[in-house]
């Protein structure tokens, strides 16, 4: 469902001699929703995800000479996005502000998400609690594990696609997924009475 079904638009939209504005716009249109969703899952912050999505395309354009065409443009963009999250996570200032505002932001998202007139309120509450526990666990994961987990479950990528996007071996992806899954399961288990 979440797989990218947009037309294949290559990085050659960014010509070497100048910007083909229409072609680059097509590249952005073809990938912006998927990248935003991925970054939203990895940051759980709509503003942050928006900024990082923009930064991904800007960085892709600035470093377009580094793109050799060995991978799909989407894979390359995904790798840039993951690297941006990693760089941002290393920033002490970013961690500080995120920690400071996280609680309010979560409350706002939660308030938006609770549906009206739910048939089984108790089950809804439990389900929300589990989903929140998963979200919290995902945020606490190291960036590489978080990326693998998100690409697998939100983007429904194959192990090979994840490996290509992360620039690592399939075995490494499996290891990341195993650790991430165990951490998420632990978190949900702790939430249950």
């Amino acid at each position: 469902m979440a797989r990218d079904t947009s037309p294949a638009i290559g990085i050659d939209a960014m010509t070497e001699t100048g910007l083909d504005a229409a072609a680059f716009d097509g590249l952005v249109r073809g990938h912006q929703k998927r990248l935003y969703r991925l970054l939203l899952a990895m940051t759980r912050d709509p503003d942050e995800a928006d900024q990082l999505t923009q930064e991904t395309f800007v960085r892709a354009f600035r470093h377009r000479d580094a793109f050799r065409g060995e991978a799909a443009a989407g894979t390359w963009l995904t790798r840039i996005a993951i690297n941006l999250v990693r760089d941002r996570s290393r920033s002490g200032a970013w961690r500080f502000w995120r920690t400071l505002f996280r609680r309010d932001g979560e409350a706002a998202v939660e308030a938006e998400q609770v549906p009206d007139g739910a048939p089984d309120p108790e089950r809804q509450v439990l389900a929300r609690r589990d989903a929140e526990a998963v979200g919290r666990a995902v945020l606490r994961l190291p960036v590489r594990q978080r990326a693998a987990f998100t690409l697998r479950y939100v983007e429904e990528m194959t192990l090979e696609e994840i490996a290509a996007s992360m620039g690592c071996e399939v075995g490494t992806v499996k290891a990341h997924l195993a650790r991430a899954t165990a951490a998420v399961r632990r978190e949900v288990g702790h939430e249950r009475p």
């Binding site: 998400q113 929140e132 979200g135 998420v184």
Partner: peptide, 12 residues
């Protein structure tokens, strides 16, 4: 929880 979280992310 995972399924709900995925739905939530996709919805947001």
């Amino acid at each position: 929880g995972l399924r709900d979280w995925v739905d939530e992310v996709r919805g947001t």
